[in-house]
């Protein structure tokens, strides 16, 4: 069952799939390739903005697989049909109130290295705190928040899905 907010875009050669529910606003895509991934534009993905090779390179860097790609020759029947659909009202990663924290596959502890890397706490410029690693988050009442290995915390003070980022920083023009 697919989310009606999901989108797909093609340049005739490859198709990029956008799954907003997976986006944690790590902002990798548009910091690296604004010509293609521009949250201020509709549609927000412009497949003509860069060569296929470059689009693949940046799509592969998405930490949550909110954007993924496929060769058009590998598309399923349903995906092919979706490409012909008229694009309805566009949504993008900066305007959606995205549920953050994705559910993870169960971790097989025996295959994991014994030494744990320090958790990475990335301060995004004019954006959220992106956290990745083996961590636990608790609320003010000491209740544990949804377990995950990657999430993003609001830094602008205005998210509507506190304590997580929902992209509001961009709308209000949050700067350091």
């Amino acid at each position: 069952m697919s989310d009606p907010r999901n989108r797909q875009y093609t340049n005739g050669e490859i198709t990029v799939f956008w799954v907003p529910s997976k986006c944690i606003h790590a902002t990798t895509c548009f910091r690296e390739l604004i010509e293609v991934f521009n949250p201020g534009r509709r549609p927000w993905i412009n497949m003509e903005g860069a060569p296929t090779r470059k689009i693949i390179e940046v799509t592969n860097k998405c930490p949550t697989q909110a954007i993924v790609w496929k060769q058009n020759t590998d598309l399923s029947e349903e995906e092919r049909a979706n490409l012909r659909q008229t694009v309805r009202e566009e949504e993008n990663p900066e305007t959606l109130a995205t549920p953050t924290g994705r559910s993870e596959e169960p971790v097989n502890e025996t295959t994991k290295p014994t030494r744990i890397k320090p958790t990475n706490v990335r301060i995004m410029k004019d954006g959220p705190i992106v956290v990745e690693g083996q961590f636990k988050a608790i609320g003010g009442d000491n209740r544990e928040l949804k377990p995950t290995t990657m999430t993003s915390f609001c830094r602008c003070g205005n998210s509507r899905s506190m304590p997580y980022c929902d992209g509001t920083h961009r709308k209000i023009g949050f700067t350091e």
Binding site: P118, T119, Q134, I138, G140, P163
Partner: peptide, 15 residues
Amino acid sequence: MEKVNTLFKVNEGGP
């Protein structure tokens, strides 16, 4: 989740 090595506490109205 025994391997957790970092704790984030979201202080209400604070850091």
